[in-house]
Design a protein around this nucleic acid. Structure first.
Lengths: 279, 279
DNA sequence: CGTGATATCTTTACGCTGTAAAGAGATGCG
DNA sequence: CGCATCTCTTTACAGCGTAAAGATATCACG
């Protein structure tokens, strides 16, 4: 279930995102002093989402975190969707904003992708916020600025840069989503991935004894590609699939970077040199 | 909010997916004759999800669709999550299962990606089912078999084929997700995308007048890349962004296919040597 | 042909959700 | 002081998934 962005008063949303609410003017209004503020509430929301997951993020839960009732939050934030937008934009601030491009764009993109990957695993709930209509807040634009700066001047026309960024984001988000869901599913259900898979594949062979006949290509692929050597000795909770997911991430990223290379070459055929894999 | 797969009795799940429930034996048990069956319920669930979206898919809604109470479904299906798994696996059956590879793998992959893209836009709720632990049903494996058959024998080692498939799926799903959410958001809120964007960008400039200073690369990119000529005359509801989304999809796909090309070349360079990690 | 076991299906109920509405209590200005 | 105004709480409502209990229909068996 995707969480859609708020549909409320657009001007108020923007003001909250960019903090242009009249924070300067001294308070002279009657009434009790505010015991909270938007930043505190957003921070509490992020803490709850990090700790308990998006499914358990409720106005009541954030209220409990702050020692208030759920309805107290509505004094500062118009709705839960708006709160999520604010959380999303604010949490992006912890990403690095600059990458060394002296060694070429390729290692810079890899570093960036690694950081984004780790970020999503740290805050898996971010992956559940709808991307349809971006939040248009400072965090979002800072993140975009960072990656545009890496890819600027490598010899792609602006439209192509946008497309490349799309592909990169979709890929990183998609792969991180799978890894994050695995990470969540394990502890949440008390069933490790190895257990889950071994139980399931046994049952699969039981339910579909003709599997190899019905799906010959898949069967051949699995028998040929399955044994990615399991590294023993690491004390992580789920070392095997974590490692597997990260390795798939790296290989896929390389594939995309090769595609970018090809695009660069075909655009500026002749002058620029490729960073790897020459024709 | 992602819908996770069922955690119930794994054997029963598999039996439901592969229809190995004792459907053969004649019914001689006492009690009233069943008025429903799993297939009917799954079809109703798909109809509700297609028509009203995943957010409005509830046991009560499916019950109403069938003229029963919500609890009647629990006679046939152990939980809502299980029902969603069954819906997911069943709806995949409408995808084509074979592609002409006579003209090379590349056009075949493009056709496949186009079909999957259209499929996701037809059933956007499928994009909201967790991919962490695949359903392992016949639909899922049929789909996988289809794409493996396209990529088999183009000169990639099995592990690489798996990675390539991962990248393709993540990309298609990611891009389709954005397009689907746009498609949903428009009608649902009564605000077209052009309206939404023009309102938002006006407010953005108001809230962040120093935008071009704070985000110079993004500002430059947008001024340089924005004008993707709007095609007029088409009578669709949201022709511009639909077209834009599809165009981004095609360009991104090309990028990935170029990356695959590079991987094929580097693998079969010389004779048949794998690029990394030989067995 | 009862009669009891069993199956389908409905009704009710519980704790959860986002948030509208109303009220309590504190605060500063006239 | 009185009163308008603000923060925050309480209560309430319609929705959710599903546990539990009960009504009703159907078969096998004495």
């Amino acid at each position: 279930m995707v969480v859609f962005s708020g549909q409320g008063d657009a001007r108020r949303s923007m003001a909250l995102l960019w903090r242009t609410a009249g924070s300067k003017e001294a308070r002279t209004a009657p009434g009790p002093k505010p015991g909270l503020d938007v930043d505190t509430i957003v921070a509490a929301g992020i803490a709850v989402a990090d700790e308990q997951g998006m499914a358990d993020l409720s106005m009541r839960a954030v209220g409990v975190w702050l020692g208030r009732s759920a309805m107290a939050l509505y004094t500062y934030v118009p709705s839960k969707n708006e709160l999520i937008d604010l959380m999303h934009d604010r949490v992006l601030a912890e990403l690095p904003t600059a990458y060394e491009t002296g060694g070429g764009w390729r290692p810079a993109v890899v570093s960036w992708a690694d950081d984004v990957w780790a970020f999503y695993l740290r805050h898996p709930w971010v992956l559940q916020v709808s991307q349809a209509r971006p939040v248009l807040g400072p965090g979002e634009y800072t993140q975009l600025e960072t990656v545009v700066r890496i890819l600027d001047g490598i010899g792609l026309e602006p439209l192509k840069v946008r497309r490349v960024i799309s592909v990169l984001f979709q890929f990183v988000r998609g792969m991180a989503r799978v890894a994050a869901e695995l990470q969540q599913a394990g502890p949440a259900t008390g069933v490790s991935d190895e257990e889950w898979w071994s139980v399931r594949s046994a049952l699969l062979m039981e339910a579909a004894p003709d599997f190899a006949q019905r799906f010959p290509a898949v069967a051949a692929l699995e028998s040929g590609a399955a044994p990615v050597a399991v590294e023993e000795g690491s004390g992580d909770t789920a070392p095997y699939l974590d490692h597997e997911a990260k390795e798939a991430f790296r290989v896929g990223l390389d594939l995309i970077l090769d595609g970018i290379d090809a695009a660069v070459l075909s655009t500026s055929a002749g002058s620029n040199r490729p960073t790897s894999s020459a024709p």
